[in-house]
Write a protein that binds this DNA or RNA. Structure first.
Lengths: 378, 378
DNA sequence: AGAGTTTGTTCGTCTCCCGAACTAACCGAC
DNA sequence: GTCGGTTAGTTCGGGAGACGAACAAACTCT
């Protein structure tokens, strides 16, 4: 790629549109004047941009609020309650699930169905997802809310095409074009025009945990600090059937969907048997049956190799580690500290079962937020 | 930080100024029309921006070239031969050095002085740099070229202030404000108005090796592919007295200056003694005395932990590993492949002694290239 | 009720880029 | 040599988008 860094007048406006939308989502309810103050744009410019977002069905003017000081109260801008939703789906070794996520960060119609998929194969998995997707589409249609996209979280390594699952040890898959399989199922339930992509579940959970909070939606705080702003560089470790590690910069995952490669690094030669066929993998050595101190050392050692050279502002334990005990955390922190990452930077995320689904649904909306001008409620 | 994504009209122009400058530097000599074609800006806009860069002393119009087809030949735009230079300095355990780097990527006035600094301490190191810096300033003044900045490469971990060396095992330093020490020395040789920063040497070498080539300056190709465009995500391993690993995105180093933390991960319990006081560190286990197969396995194992979850497009062996033999590389490749990074992605950089200095000098110019409008030949 | 304050809108102006038209410079053909 | 064809660079009008001042609206406090 060449230095095509040109910004045309139209792109400038689209960029500002995105900036205004993001600001409203993060601070809703918020007045136009406040948006202007936070973004640095003038009130007149913000008014114009907001009008376009109201027109596009992304925001709603909820009328005047109560005045902040002594003066005219601003209008409360909020995400449109009838605005677009993202559809998040998830495949695990013991079930499938899904939920809707809207621009306010609220989840809805969450589902989980127990299905033994560890040996059933990708075709069965795609078929198991179909009823979940149908329910979600019905729920969206019932609320008269357009679906902006579908993102499927898989416990595996996903290719750059965001369709092929390169390997998913816990499911026994390798080189499966799961996106294509799912697209067929999606068509049968009337989800054809909707963009669909397959992603690594840990990456999505990391994005959900590391993203700045939206509005007043209750949200477990892992990476994000109390004022809602994420620190610059965060390393997130999580996963359920797998164990993965993700680098986030300003809340956005860097690099590809191969987080779970981390779980199959060798933590202990000749250790416990792993789903991948080898022994002593990080994933196996941090299982529920392993003594916490030993598991903590196994995770901390591998984690240090990844995190230490990146000098992260925070290391966040999520997923299966969010509920870990003090002994485990101390062991992890000690290994990190031994390699230059201060133990104070180690944080435990609040355990929240829906994090991966929330990340998947949110990811389905991210394109829309990045370029609201392109959004048309098809 | 809030969503201050506003782009004012003035900032837009400054951005385009930077885009045009980068394009010229990468493809010099190049005509205005070609710049327009590559950037997507119109010829009229490019003409205006180029005029500003010519006026600022960053570019020079070297007259008409030979016509590309049948038509009027374009004017050859090149970096101004009397344009600003960056001053790169380097501290190592066995000496200090420095060189000038200009916008064309050419190095000049390169120096190296052997000084035993492994035990001499930071004050002695700062004093040893002074004559090098004086020579460089004289060389710059002799060519009537303004100095845009000074960057010092150190084999250690550097703080976010880009001044404090948090730890430098090979030098025996810890928590030394080397930037402050150097600033004092710099003043005595008349380098006071010039911005000075301290950086991790491996990070700078990675930037030099991963950056898109500039003009026709001969440059060893490590990360960059043959057409000069760097692949998206690159993991670089290098170092001389230390061993560090750096993540590059589009040729630009991600994250902080703690690359050499990598070299003190434990590769082999109870292994060779390391400068940091522990045993079996990656840095110690990849020394020149270690059998290549064993060193390769030591490096590969640690490298896999860092690289596998990032799914890089390329893994580049630089620095002390650039001259490694086939046996070593095979061992590294095998370890990477075991963890999902195909061995074909492992590349060996061309050994080039000046890479770190070139990176340091280039880094001293990077601010100028990113915002040429702010440059004033003080 | 009136002064003071803050919000949101309107309107004129400015900056910057685009695109068309024009001049300049070179090639090849006759 | 001269005349079309082609490409490079500049000039100039026009338009898009943001800014800033001015104004109307809405609320508080005295």
């Amino acid at each position: 790629m060449d230095a095509r860094g040109r910004i045309t007048a139209g792109e400038l406006r689209r960029h500002h549109l995105s900036v205004v939308l993001e600001t409203v989502l993060r601070h809703a309810p918020i007045s136009r004047a406040d948006v202007a103050g936070r973004t640095g744009l003038t009130r007149s410019t913000v008014s114009g941009l907001v009008a376009e977002l109201l027109d596009g069905g992304l925001l709603r003017d909820a009328g005047t609020g109560r005045p902040a000081g002594s003066g005219r109260p601003g209008h409360r801008l909020v995400p449109d309650p009838a605005g677009p939703v993202g559809i998040g789906l998830r495949i695990e070794d013991d079930g499938v699930g899904g939920c809707l996520v809207d621009l306010a960060g609220r989840t809805g119609a969450r589902q989980w169905r127990r299905v033994a998929l560890a040996v059933a194969g990708p075709v069965a998995a795609a078929r198991a997802v179909r009823p979940v997707l149908r329910e979600l589409l019905l729920a969206a249609a019932g609320g008269d809310r357009p679906a902006a996209g579908i993102v499927v979280a898989v416990p595996g390594v996903v290719g750059a095409d965001r369709s092929t699952v390169r390997t998913a040890p816990a499911l026994g898959w390798s080189d499966v074009d799961f996106g294509a399989l799912l697209a067929v199922e999606a068509r049968t339930v009337g989800a054809d025009g909707i963009a669909l992509s397959v992603r690594c579940g840990v990456t999505l959970a990391a994005a959900a945990d590391g993203a700045p909070s939206r509005g007043a939606a209750p949200r477990p705080r892992g990476a994000a600090s109390s004022d809602g702003a994420a620190p610059g560089t965060v390393v997130y470790v999580g996963g359920r059937s797998e164990v993965g590690v993700v680098l986030l910069r300003d809340g956005v995952p860097c690099a590809g969907d191969s987080a779970i490669r981390f779980g199959h690094l060798t933590a202990r030669r000749g250790g416990a048997a792993c789903s991948c066929g080898r022994r002593g993998c990080v994933a196996a050595e941090t299982g529920p049956d392993v003594p916490p101190a030993r598991a903590g050392r196994a995770l901390g050692g591998a984690l240090a190799a990844f995190a230490a050279p990146l000098d992260p502002d925070a290391v966040v334990l999520g997923g299966r580690f969010a509920a870990a005990g003090a002994e485990f955390c101390t062991a992890v922190g000690a290994e990190l500290a031994r390699h230059g990452v201060p133990a104070e930077r180690l944080h435990r995320s609040t355990p929240a079962p829906g994090t991966t689904l929330r990340g998947a649904g949110g990811s389905a909306l991210s394109g829309l937020v990045a370029d609201p001008g392109a959004w048309t409620p098809a």
